[in-house]
Design a protein around this nucleic acid. Sequence first.
DNA 1: GTGAAAGCGCTAACAT
DNA 2: ATGTTAGCGCTTTCAC
Lengths: 331, 331
Amino acid sequence: VHDDAQPPNARSRPTLRTIAERTGLHVSSVSRALQRPPDADESAAAVHAAALELGYRPDAAAVTLRTRRTKVIGMLVHALTDVVQAILYEEVERVAAERGYQAVVASTHDDPAIQRARVELLLRQRVDGLILADAHRDGEYVDWVSGLDVPYVLVMRSAGEHPAVVCDDELGGRLAAGHLLRTGHERVGLLTGPVFSSASFGRAEGFRRAMAEAGRPLAEDHQAHAGIFAEGGRDAMDALLDRDPGITAVATINDYVALGALSVLRRRGRSDVHVVGYNDIVAAEAVGLTTVRSPQLELARRAAGSLLDAIEGERPAQGAVLVPELVVRDT
Amino acid sequence: VHDDAQPPNARSRPTLRTIAERTGLHVSSVSRALQRPPDADESAAAVHAAALELGYRPDAAAVTLRTRRTKVIGMLVHALTDVVQAILYEEVERVAAERGYQAVVASTHDDPAIQRARVELLLRQRVDGLILADAHRDGEYVDWVSGLDVPYVLVMRSAGEHPAVVCDDELGGRLAAGHLLRTGHERVGLLTGPVFSSASFGRAEGFRRAMAEAGRPLAEDHQAHAGIFAEGGRDAMDALLDRDPGITAVATINDYVALGALSVLRRRGRSDVHVVGYNDIVAAEAVGLTTVRSPQLELARRAAGSLLDAIEGERPAQGAVLVPELVVRDT
DNA sequence: GTGAAAGCGCTAACAT
DNA sequence: ATGTTAGCGCTTTCAC
């Protein structure tokens, strides 16, 4: 028997038309029936049943083309291998899902060219909004994004007057300084991060100010640039120790840098030197690192919530400033 | 003057039609002109110029709807906060970009319901292929995916006969055992991970076998289930120490668990106990953790390459087994 | 090389 | 609630 009712591409994915043929309804009726609950009426039930049986999966491209919305928000991070950024993203993903959205990420490694390219890509995808966790203080990048006519919000790092959900980094720096001052350190060092990041910049500034205000201004040769990774922390710690072996404590821009510093101290047999990190990643607890905890989940939640509100309310997103907390451990 | 040439939604994004109106060409000619290099001929040049000037951005949804390809591959990880998974993803992202593809991730937290939901979502997006870094040995999940008519490949964890790019975990376990045997430990423990992960399972099996073959079979009470996070490592290490305070070394399923174990040892003043981790994450170097290094970048590269070949060659992806390496440090 | 025409799968008027 | 119609933005025949 020759089954000529079978369309040529019988093995292709089912569409609304497939369901329409099965149920004897029109394609548009099927579309509508799918929008209402399966138990709304007879045809709704029939349509849902057929959809399930056929393994029908709405075509996102077609829906987007028609509705002009994707229900997707894009997030830009500098690197997912920085667990802080990964935590932020996963929480954004969670909040988005709760509100019926999807999230997608792109890593930009703080490279302006990649930042633009990835935003371009997300825009082709027609994402409904953008969360930037990789903003630079100079504003070039964020100013450009703000002119793109897509809702956006920054998180973790701020830039100019753009809406940003951040931690009070200057306070965080002060917290670190306060701890070192309180424990009576006379010669302290600072391992700094990139100045293009408001987080790094703010932490360092807060630290320096608190030290100066306490009458112990930080000498230039007690500061070394470490970047944001462990390797930079190693090099910077080595340099600091070479310049002044008499140092008894260092504050660092983040826990990775602190970890790097710790490895040098261990290697050089200088476990007497105290170290303060920043962020409180899980490895910090494991090595007993004193650190400043940033409220990462809350940052992500607020940023995502604010962006989603902005998308749905058609107005700009709101920023916020949250408070960090000192966590004293062994180091 | 009333400008009636202006369409109603003048402020909306430029489309091929906008460029067509600008250049006096037909939409289809514009589409074709955009496919050839800007310097191919006069109209190509004019069209590219207009596109640039207008800030034209192809609509991914429309292209996909028309061509049935997205040039996007989806990756499923158990958690991006596990830096190993983040590394895998970022490398996949890189390889994909090199070959003109985009990557998207979804975290599933090893929850079967989430795994299916996220795959469904990616399928609606019509991704061209799937990389699973969160496979379970029981096969339920992967078997289902394999029946979905979308190219796929597993990475890091295998399942049945499905194509998988993995590390020789059983060998990795043997490497850890060999090290402990060589350094003369008499009473060693093992902190195990979830059996649903072939990686955890393989490492533990390799370790046990090597110990047994050396005439030092691992007693049941010298093993404790730790999962894959630091917290589990803490609890398991505590349990092990309570059961046998005479233990002198432990092997762990991964570096996070090792870090957790280390924190307990530090707290209990038992820095004499040796620990071996697995993966060699950056924190391992920082704390001087002896560990087994898995070739993560290579795993990701091979998996992504193999998937892309499969997509373009319309045949199944290839698996591979790579070799781990022992990294001896202080612990 | 170009224009005309069709159509990917879906939703949203509109009328009934 | 249902069918009709139109169209989102793009690519790809098909003639020329």
